[in-house]
Write a protein that binds this DNA or RNA. Structure first.
Lengths: 193, 193
DNA sequence: CACGCATCTTTACACTGTCAAGATACAAGC
DNA sequence: GCTTGTATCTTGACAGTGTAAAGATGCGTG
């Protein structure tokens, strides 16, 4: 049961509480003490599971990134071709953060994203959403037998990522207005790719 | 003179101190009290000039945005054509923040950028760098007599902005590695446009 | 000269992250 | 079963933060 604290699943409960606070009160209201209070636990209890506030935040980010990933993976698995998958990934990338602007600010306000653009130079700590984009792009190349130098590939990957990420960023800055239905427009693939 | 505090230029001194802190100790070390201390003034003195910490931060942002703007304006005035101006603006956009990653996090960690994409729907509070991009793009259209519907124009503007902004954002996330010389590559216009 | 007002200081408060010391309770060994 | 140990949680404290109220200071205007 969930009332048997003092042992069990406090670590996960703290992460969930953090996500809840971000969703309900915004990223700027996330604090160690509030997270602890939400779990009915003293303000120093989190230190048994995380050495830092940063370590808690990092765990919450990993959790949110997980949700983000399932959204992107759905785009890939639902797409009939790898070309469509690429475009749909971008669409879901932007749509995810339009639905939860606080997640964007939370995930990318720090500076800890690691990513190796160069094909073949993967790294275990690479940011998972980026890895998926890279894989999908490479599959697109090989499926369609498109010849591309390594440097051209790097540029392509960077452009794909940047356009989706930049669009998401702009969409999350509260006062940016477009005349058309933004989400609808994105789904017609005119903005991405 | 600058020693005659207690009257004079405290407001501007606070802004300059804020910029200095961001440059030397990073955006996360910016605090009202440190800014006040740097000006040899009590910790509550800023409240005579700003109602909030937010209002101070907003003033500092405006100051930094000013530096950013002169960088972009230089690209426009130095370019022989409006087409070249567009590309160079993007290049300077990214280069500026690559030189000062802390400025990027500082400027865009909040959510107060206002921008009206639709041509003809300008607003006095629109983000100046965006306004310049929009103007340059429209000049490019008219100079080259390129026919474009209003919605197509919106999409173009958004794509231009998003690619530059996304590239800057990615470049500012510490662990993103490319095999080529990033700044050099950007200046060859292969990434932007 | 006196008044008023903008500016700055002092003091206080709630909230934050962090740490040290102690309490609690489960698991393992005898 | 009882003791011991260790992971977990509590309590209390401290420095740093933003903010508000109250008082001090000194300039310009009447």
């Amino acid at each position: 049961m969930s009332d048997s604290y003092h042992h069990g699943n406090l670590r996960q409960a703290l992460i969930d509480a953090g996500v809840k606070i971000i969703n309900e009160n915004g990223e700027e209201n996330l604090s160690l003490r509030k997270v602890a209070a939400l779990c009915n636990v003293s303000h120093a209890a989190p230190y048994s599971h995380f050495k830092d506030k940063d370590e808690l935040v990092e765990a919450i980010k990993a959790h949110v990134t997980g949700q983000f990933m399932t959204e992107l993976e759905k785009a890939v698995s639902d797409a009939p071709s790898s070309e469509k998958a690429l475009v749909d990934m971008g669409r879901n990338y932007v749509a995810f953060f339009m639905r939860r602007p606080d997640y964007f600010k939370f995930l990318f306000s720090g500076q800890n994203i690691v990513a190796h653009i160069q094909p073949g130079k993967e790294h275990p700590e690479d940011y998972p959403p980026f890895v998926l984009l890279k894989e999908t792009y490479l599959k697109y190349l090989s499926e369609n037998k498109i010849p591309r130098t390594e440097e051209e590939q790097e540029v392509d990957i960077l452009k794909l990522w940047a356009s989706a990420h930049g669009l998401a960023s702009i969409a999350c800055m509260s006062g940016v207005e477009v005349s058309f239905d933004w989400e609808k427009k994105i789904s017609t693939d005119e903005l991405l790719r």
